[in-house]
Design a protein around this nucleic acid. Structure first.
Lengths: 150, 150
DNA sequence: GTACACGTACTCGGATAAGACGTGTCCGAGTGCTGGGGG
DNA sequence: CCCCCAGCACTCGGACACGTCTTATCCGAGTACGTGTAC
C-alpha cells in the first residue's frame, strides 16, 4: 500500500499558503520546496477541485486557501490528492467459487470488509484531528513569511 | 492509495485454513474462492515467508496454518501480503528548495510525517484487534467444513 | 506376510510477460497588470 | 490631469510520454503416496 508522493507536497504547500497574504504561483511553490513545477501544478489543480485552494489567473496570480487553516484538516488534503475511495475494495469473493455463500447470508457486509473499513475509519479520524494551522505551528513560520515577502 | 487485491484473497484463505484439518492445496483454495490459481499461489508464498502458513509438498500436500487462528491477526496477513513498509514515505522536502530548514531544526521528525505515522499506527492497531478466529465466527464455518471434507 | 524399490501424480517455487497506475513534461488558452496615447 | 485601449507577460489547464509496480501466467524441480515385486 503506497500513498502518492504528491500528498506530502500538497500538505507542505497548504502550510505555506496559510502564511501567505498574497496569491502564490505554483511555480513559486515548487521552487520553495525544490520539486517539479509542472507536476506540482497538477496536484494543485486537485486541491482546487476539492475546494481547498482557489487559483487566480493572470499576472500576480496564484493560489490562495479558500478557508482559514484551522478549518482545513490533513484528511481534507490527503483525500483531495489521493482520492476519497477507500484503499480496500471488497470484491465479494464470498459469493464466488465452490463455497459461495447464499444471497440471504450476504445482506450484511462481509466480515473482512468490515474489519478493513473500521481500520480505515480510525485512520481518517486520526488524520482529521490535525489541521493545517496545527501543522504550521511546528514549522518556522517567521522565516517562511520573510521568504514569501521577498 | 490502494491496497493489493491479494490481501482479500489471503484473509479469506486463512479463514478457510483455520477450519481445515488437512493441508489444502493452493489450487483448491483458488477454486473454492473462484480466483486465479497461479496468482493466489504467489500470495500464499508470501504467507509462508511471513511464517503464517506452512506448505507441504508432494501428493496430498498443501498449506496449513502455523499458529492457532486466535494468534493470527488481520494485520499479520495484511503486512505479509502488502509489505510492512508504511504507506507514507517522508522525502524531507522541508530540507529542500528556497525555504529549506537548517539541520538543527530537523533533529525531530517532520510534523507532516508525524501526523501520517500516527494515523497509520491507529490503522494498524485497529487491524490487529481482530484475529482470524474472530473472522471465522462471522462466516458459515459448518458449510465450510462440509465442503472441505468432500 | 512383510519389506523394499520404483513409477507416478501431485505439490510448491521462481522466472517470465502484460496491464494499470503514478510520475513527469509539454504547449495552448485565458486573464490581469502596465505603459502609452488621446481627450 | 484623467481616462481609455492595446500589448504583454504571466498564470492556469488539459493533453501527451515514461517508469514502476501490481497483476497474471507458465513451466520446471522436488516430494510423498501407491503399487508391484522379491524375499
Amino acid at each position: 500500500m503506497r500513498m502518492s508522493a504528491g500528498v506530502e507536497w500538497a500538505v507542505h504547500c497548504c502550510v505555506v499558503l496559510s502564511q501567505a497574504e498574497h496569491p502564490v504561483p505554483s511555480s513559486r511553490l515548487a521552487s520553495l520546496h525544490g520539486v517539479s513545477k509542472t507536476y506540482l501544478a497538477k496536484h494543485l489543480q486537485a486541491l482546487a477541485r476539492a475546494g481547498i485552494a482557489r487559483p487566480t489567473e493572470g499576472r500576480d496570480g496564484g493560489y490562495v486557501l479558500m478557508r482559514p487553516p484551522e478549518q482545513i484538516s490533513v484528511l481534507d488534503v490527503v483525500q483531495a490528492i489521493d482520492g476519497p475511495e477507500p484503499a480496500f475494495r471488497c470484491t465479494e469473493i464470498r459469493q464466488q467459487g465452490e463455497l459461495a455463500a447464499p444471497p440471504e447470508q450476504c445482506r450484511k457486509i462481509c466480515g473482512v470488509a468490515k474489519v478493513m473499513a473500521d481500520a480505515e475509519r480510525a485512520w481518517r479520524t486520526s488524520l482529521s484531528a490535525t489541521s493545517i494551522a496545527d501543522l504550521a505551528g511546528s514549522f518556522d513560520t517567521s522565516g517562511m513569511r520573510r521568504v514569501l515577502r521577498s
